[in-house]
Design a protein around this nucleic acid. Structure first.
Lengths: 140, 140
DNA sequence: CCCAATCGGATCGAATCAGTCCGATTGAAA
DNA sequence: TTTCAATCGGACTGATTCGATCCGATTGGG
């Protein structure tokens, strides 16, 4: 019942990215600097987020990343799923993988999907815009 | 964002236990049989659940376990916390352990507690009685 | 044409988790 | 009273996953 560190870092980095002007080219190095996430880890994360479609990546000199959608259109659930894979609290909930091993007539299985959807809904209701702190970046 | 197998098993076992008459002595062997959870694992789990106060344990011949509270008074959050420890999605949320390593001025930290409470609330709203199959225990 | 900067995948080590085994304790029976 | 069998409790080992790091592939500028 805990988020992986990678997912945590991803939220922090995307939150930092959301505070930049839209369309601005962002390198893994820059975000690593701003957030304190170790550079190699930051690179790995950016790659994975790009693969998931949350970031658009450009290679070569002066390349970098930028958010593929508005911060308000990216939910916490999107980020978590991009890094950790599908949100499935138990193996039962995940489609495929019916290797539970327990008795076929598992009485609790039907209830898990309800719980799972609730959790998923809670995460889906939080947008990156909220997380990035609304009124930040404002100098005194 | 996934529950550990142990926690999953714990739910299944407690659910099975809840289907028995209140006050009936339950051994790890019995529940292992009923649920299909491997016996040694079942023993380990029962021990941990007893330590957390969800079960009352009795040693010796004819000993065993029994629910320390009514099934309706045991929430999913209780079970998860008993097996996995405090529900804290990120290290920030957990009191103590301020070894985040990121910059001190983490802009997202304040938002995590809100998310965490939401999740926790969702788990707390599900009782063991619901999980054990709604219309059980209740005589016609 | 060469170079520098950046992404992308592959590799390595560490921590946690799941599973198993054996000893300590208790109650009942002879 | 003594012995025995059944059960809980904690300690150990192996495996899987996670987190971090390093090096190669690609691209744009000079």
């Amino acid at each position: 019942m805990r988020l992986s560190s990678l997912a945590d870092y991803a939220v922090v980095m995307l939150s930092a990215a959301a505070r930049h002007a839209p369309g601005e080219r962002l390198s893994a190095t820059l975000l690593s600097d701003e957030t304190g996430v170790p550079l190699p880890t930051a690179q790995k994360l950016m790659g994975r987020l790009a693969q998931a479609g949350l970031l658009a990546s450009a290679r070569g000199t002066g390349g970098g990343f930028l958010l593929s959608r508005a911060a308000s259109a990216i939910s916490l659930a999107d980020i978590v799923e991009a890094v950790e894979g599908p949100i499935a609290m138990t193996a039962c909930v995940d489609d495929q993988r019916h290797d539970c091993g327990l008795e076929g007539a598992c009485r609790v299985k039907p209830h898990w999907s309800v719980v799972n959807n609730t959790i998923r809904g809670a995460l889906d209701g939080v947008s990156l815009a909220m997380l990035s702190g609304a009124s930040t970046g404002v100098p005194a």
